[in-house]
Amino acid sequence: MTEIERYYAPASLEQAVDCLQEAGGVTVLAGGTDLMPQKNAGRLKPQRTLMNIRGIAELRGVELSGGEIRIGALTTITDLLENPLVRQHLPQLIEACNHFASDQIRNVATLGGNICNASPAGDTLVPLLVLDARVDLVSRPEGRMLRRGLPVAEFFVGPGKTRKAPTELLAGVTIPLPPENYLGRFFKFGTRPALDIATISIGFGGILEGGVLSRVRVAFGAVAATPVRASHTEAALEGRPLTEATIAAAAAAARDEVTPIDDVRASAWYRKELIHNMTKRILDHVAHA
């Protein structure tokens, strides 16, 4: 068992990425709501340095500039729920946050933490996929701040695994401002309103003009090793009139393209059925919106 040898609470982003740059592993602590239980259950081995980044003020907050919404990694789920910009422009994300864990956890858990945990069922990840979000990664090799952006869709590589290098810190996400007539939907299936790990989740985004869908995005959670964009489902919808036949074809495509597993929460068969039935339901609602 690795023992923690150092506790470090940097006050600035520079200090934090410098720490990551140093030799030896670093465990990053933000809200702690996933870190603590993972550590206790032995699923996560603490590295030699425990770095608490919560004090880095610049990593928290939501701002709109240049047609993009930037959300700092330390922004909590409650911050998002209460933020007017997010409420106005990112309905899927609000819906996902509303179904996220419990109030006590929403008050502390950060968007960055949810992204870095890279759970296939992570509640905010599906909306971020649908919203074409990019992750903003920062490092400081040889004392020089280096930022790189990566589409969220490329960020996840497996359960708990991302393309973030050990020397990089997730600073936030950037989301292009959706147009005025944008329709966004999020659906999470569980027996409770929240405090539940998604059996499946569905994100939808697009523009419906003259009965025809465009800029369609569909993503699914808890049906693969990572949250995934649903390219076949999107293709079945893009540029088509949203008729019963289109909806049926899209729902069928959705069922066919997901590759869920059997686990303690649901069977693969049931997850496919839910994906089919609920994709259909969401599209029905969009058609009647």
Binding site: T191, R192, P193, L195, D196, I197, V264, R265
Partner: peptide, 16 residues
């Protein structure tokens, strides 16, 4: 036992 925790052994919560 596959679910020895409150995450997967689901007690009824207030909204239900």
């Amino acid at each position: 036992m596959k679910n020895p925790n409150f995450r997967d052994y689901k007690l009824v919560t207030a909204p239900e």
